[in-house]
Design a protein around this nucleic acid. Structure first.
Length: 598
RNA sequence: CGGGGCGUAGCGCAGCCUGGUAGCGCAUCUGCUUUGGGAGCAGAGGGCCGGGGGUUCGAAUCCCUCCGCCCCGACCA
């Protein structure tokens, strides 16, 4: 039993000015954490206690499917060079040198290290499949830490890695994680949604994110309320309404039109009296193709010009664009680069008359169009000349391209992509609490992990990797359950599921009753916090409301008649309960909560 | 990395423009009163005004520079 009078729980009446999002304010106000630097936090007693309970749930579920390891946090350079990520990770990797000048880094993820273990020890298909996991600190030099514990430079992650002989076996490992993750997030009381996700720099074929809707989130999720389709906006697709095409003018071929000052889509649409959907937007990028940095010396990074064309009313999805052309990073072109690659100024860029490479990422310009432009006709496009546009532009006839792909972001209200669904997509903000990937042989191949199959033939195992952000579970739980006075956590992950508040500690009878109830709760296997501080009742109530404990027992005036109050924080509802029944009542509420979550 | 903002007591802020003994609220400590929703009265302690340099008789205040933090964007297994 913990007595509040002896604890360090530095609650704040006011939130520090730095805190913006709800979870950040409350983590500070409730004395869960204190900031040490940008994206670096001290976890105090209540915070650590809650995180430990989350970890216990994660560990319990993971132990059903895998084996826990503990890997170093400080890592040598070599494995990263072998996988190509010593340079591939770029600035996000914390790097350091030891006294001999050797390069080291702080672990931001452990695919390479797990692969080192696998290649050193796994020899036979009989040893597969393997699922190895770790729960430990990871370090990332984030360009912009923000939002309290949501985006930080040091955090706790459950990361697991599977090694399988073939795709069917990987499916099984992947599905085991899918199930385990759903169990974990459910037990942690999160209202989550699993969405299709972009695999990003991890490479790999399939991936799914586990998201919790909250305005504090950094991801956008498109979902269909009719069929349940849900995908990260980086990945989401939709069905577009057919567009009514413009009638051609003149002889129907591209016609140069003087459009003074019409640099923005809205200006052009107004000038020609057309819908932005009939205008072709151009966004020009310089994209980076990562070199390889194998020990034998590899190719350097290279930059390439890319012009992306899409409907005027659509937005470029840079994640999709990078995926389509196989590049790692991008930035928009500067004026002189526009002149070099497109021979025109910003605001008047267009595809007509552009020379382009036959394959992506050549020496010249890669022209990529969004699929929605295919089959369109009589469009308006920039003429690569200040204050001029073309009309009557028909893709395929008047210009060609290096490749056509889905490179746009879906918009809310567009039709669900699922066959025969007919629902309309809604877009909402969410925070990512977990992510599962099928990696394939990206690491095992480059790092030389091989086993013999049943025919004695050497084969490369394939991998999956699966992460859960421990702090993000806590953060998401706070985001989804807070009000002006504080927050409440699910009983499963709260630092304490119940607090016994003795309203007046100077009253020996009340104090003894409180002690007795707390002892009985403890005997019943419930972690209990006894608020025995010599404070006014109001102070103790305010603190209890603030710090995330879902149930409170008030031991006060009614104790003389054998009653205490049982308060459920989530609904701020108080019930009078007989003293000798309160333990049973608390147990029932906790059990009921767990049941309703599941 | 681009843009914006901030740095003064533990927390929240004023003072800076127009240079002249550093303030307010909350918190803390002491005493008395109070005791079911962040109590009242009286008293007290607590500051390299982010660091360095400069201008000045004199700098929290003006100038230069560095550092740190927050927000938007870029970025983000």
């Amino acid at each position: 039993m913990h007595r509040w009078s002896r604890l360090f729980v530095p609650t704040l009446r006011e939130a520090p000015a730095d805190a913006e999002v709800a979870s950040h304010k409350f983590l500070l106000r409730a004395g869960y954490v204190r900031q040490l630097g940008a994206g670096i936090y001290n976890y105090l007693f209540l915070g650590q206690r809650s995180l430990n309970r989350i970890i216990a749930i994660v560990r319990e579920e993971m132990d059903r499917i895998g084996q826990e390891f503990l890997l170093p946090g400080i890592l040598p350079k070599d494995p990263w060079v072998e996988s190509g990520r010593w340079t591939g990770m770029g600035e996000n990797m914390f790097r350091l040198k030891d006294r001999k000048g050797a390069d080291l880094c702080l672990g931001m993820t452990h695919e390479e290290i797990m692969t080192v273990i696998a290649r050193g020890e796994l020899r036979s298909y009989k040893q597969l499949p393997q699922i190895w996991y770790q729960i430990q600190t990871k370090y990332r030099d984030e360009p912009r830490p923000k939002s309290g514990l949501l985006r930080v430079r040091q955090f706790t992650m459950k990361d697991s890695y599977s090694f399988d002989l073939n795709a069917a076996s990987l499916d099984t490992s992947y599905n085991l994680h899918d199930v385990a993750y759903r169990n974990i997030f459910t037990r942690c009381g999160l209202k989550f949604v699993a969405v299709e996700a972009d695999s990003g720099a991890m490479g790999g074929s399939q991936s799914q994110e586990f998201m919790v809707y909250t305005d504090a989130g950094e991801d956008l999720i498109a979902s269909c309320p009719v069929c349940g389709y849900a995908a990260n906006l980086e990945k989401a697709t939709s069905r577009l309404e057919p567009v009514t095409e413009m009638e051609p003018t003149g002889d129907g071929t591209p016609e140069l039109v003087h459009t003074p000052g019409c640099a923005a889509i809205a200006d052009v649409a107004e000038f020609f009296k057309i819908s932005p959907a009939s205008d072709i937007k151009c966004v020009a990028y310089m994209v980076l193709r990562r070199g390889t940095d194998s020990k034998k010396g590899g190719a350097p990074d290279t930059w390439h010009g890319v012009a992306a064309f899409l409907r005027g009313d659509h937005q470029v999805n840079e994640t999709k664009l990078l995926g389509a052309i196989g590049a790692a990073e991008l930035r928009t072109m500067q004026a002189e680069e526009l002149e070099k690659y497109l021979h025109g100024p910003a605001g008047f860029l267009g595809p007509v008359g552009l020379e382009h490479d036959a394959k992506p990422l050549g020496d010249g310009l890669t022209v990529i169009i969004d699929k929605s432009l295919e089959g369109r006709k009589n469009l308006v496009a920039g003429a690569n000349k200040q204050d001029y546009h073309y009309r009557n532009v028909t893709p395929g006839r008047d210009f060609t391209w290096t490749l056509s792909a889905d490179i746009r972001s879906v918009n809310e209200g567009e039709a669900c992509p699922v066959d025969n669904c007919g629902g309309k997509l809604v877009v909402g903000k969410a925070v990512e609490v977990g992510h599962i990937f099928k990696l394939g042989d990206r690491y095992t191949e480059s790092m030389g992990a091989r086993v013999l199959d049943e025919n004695g033939k050497e084969v490369t195992p394939i991998m999956g990797c699966y992460g859960i952000g421990i702090e993000r579970i806590l953060t998401a739980a706070i985001e989804q359950s807070n009000d002006a006075n504080g927050f409440w956590l699910p009983a499963t992950i709260a630092p304490f599921p119940v607090v016994v508040t003795v309203t007046n500690i100077a009253d020996a009878a009340l104090r003894e009753t409180g002690e007795k109830i707390a002892a009985e709760l403890e005997a019943a296997g419930i972690d209990v916090l006894l608020d025995d501080r010599d404070e006014r009742a109001g102070v103790k109530f305010k603190d209890a409301d603030l710090v995330g404990i879902p149930y409170r027992i008030n031991v006060g005036k009614k104790a003389a008649s054998g009653q205490v109050e049982l308060v459920s924080r989530a609904i701020s509802q108080s019930t009078d309960v007989a003293i000798d029944e309160v333990v049973t009542a608390v147990k029932a509420r906790i059990a009921n909560e767990v049941k309703s979550i599941n």
